[in-house]
Simulated assay, not measured.
Amino acid sequence: MDQRPVAVYAALDDDLGPGIATLEAAGFRVVVAGSDEPSDLAAAAPEAVALLVGYGRVDDAVLRALPALRVISLMSQGHDNVDLAACTRADVQVAHLPPVATEEVAVHAWALSLALVRQLPFYGRATAATWLDRPRFAPRRLSDLTVGVVGTGRIAERYAALARGHVGSLLSWSRSGRSLPGTASLADLHDLAATSDVVSLHLPLSGETHHLVDDAFLAAMKPGSWLVNVGRGGLVDSAALARALDSGHLAGAALDVLDEEPPSPGHPLAGRDDVLLTPHVGWFSAESERGYAVEQAANVVAWLRTGAVTHPVS
């Protein structure tokens, strides 16, 4: 009988090969369930001590389905999909990733910002029949613009560094009051919204930040400005953003994350000409894909060898 500890993968669409190799080399038997459903996880690996998960919900139902579970390893830095209180009650450690894709996400956010400022989504649709068409909001001169950065973590700092020297001015805001190098720190979030031509969101999702961008925030934004979100979809009230776009108050938005992924056909931000959507790929590169898989597995290996994960969720 195989006595190796069992690690089970939930629904993950990425290349699991490097992670599986890391786990097997450490002595695990690896099962790929390919599902976030508790019943599927229980059927695939009822004896699993480790669960490797992407964005699937981890709650009491999952913990009951895997009674031997002792460690959960996420494939992101965010952990809003995990019921941490339930895991604490069940004596299950939760690990997240170190900053594997800081550069990728910051570059993605900056690329989205430039695409909005230069109205690339509009011009990218131009054909011979519409060659001379012009967008409702003309492209802007980058050096005349003010960019507001919401959040002051590693990705926000890298984004600000990319923008520095190219834009007219840089503003920042954080809940902690920390300022970003080379930016003017504002104490009031709505003041940042009111004075920025581009607002870029770089915050984790929590009870405090859920729907941070609501009707009031959007009303405070400058007419003809743009919103960029590479943080978490729940930071933005999608219905409120759709209303701000419908009214013509905002020039557009670029989003790598949504409150519903993938968006349903009736999602208020799907299929709009004034919204540039990318499918949660800001983190993605050849280097980061391997790094994510290996680091996720490494947390589980550390638990097996030492009894504690390397990057615990605090």
Rank of each mutant, 00 (worst) to 15 (best):
S314R: 15
A187V: 04
L201W: 12
T306W: 08
S169H: 13
M75Y: 13
A239Q: 11
S169D: 12
D237P: 06
P67Q: 12
L241I: 10
H96P: 00
T152P: 02
S113E: 02
L245F: 06
D60Y: 00
V281K: 10
E260N: 07
S247Y: 03
A308Y: 08
L241V: 07
D2K: 05
P5R: 05
T22R: 15
M1S: 14
G291T: 10
S143R: 14
A298V: 04
P38I: 02
K222V: 13
G177V: 03
A11S: 14
E24I: 01
R89D: 10
L180Y: 08
R4V: 07
L245C: 07
H249N: 05
P121A: 10
G124E: 12
R29D: 11
R70G: 10
P279Q: 05
P67D: 14
A239G: 05
V213N: 05
V8E: 01
Q3T: 14
F284G: 00
I72E: 00
P263S: 09
L112T: 04
T102N: 05
H166R: 15
A216T: 14
H190F: 02
R125Q: 15
S185Y: 00
E260R: 10
R125Y: 04
V313F: 07
A33T: 09
A308F: 06
E104L: 10
V62F: 00
A251C: 11
V199H: 08
A10S: 15
A43E: 14
P98C: 09
G168V: 11
A48G: 10
W131Q: 11
A216V: 13
S179D: 13
D59H: 03
G248L: 08
L255Q: 06
D256R: 04
E47S: 11
T88I: 05
Q93K: 11
S76D: 01
G271Y: 12
P5A: 09
A270H: 14
S179P: 09
A220N: 06
R136Q: 14
S76A: 13
T183Q: 10
G153E: 12
V8S: 01
R141W: 13
P5M: 09
D2Q: 11
Q77P: 01
I20R: 06
A48D: 06
P312W: 10
G27C: 11
Y292A: 02
H190D: 15
T306K: 03
D13S: 13
H166Q: 15
A61M: 02
L23T: 02
L69W: 03
L116H: 02
L245N: 03
V53M: 01
W226G: 00
A129H: 12
A68F: 03
P46L: 12
V94K: 03
V199W: 07
D80W: 02
G34I: 10
V199A: 06
V281D: 08
A45I: 06
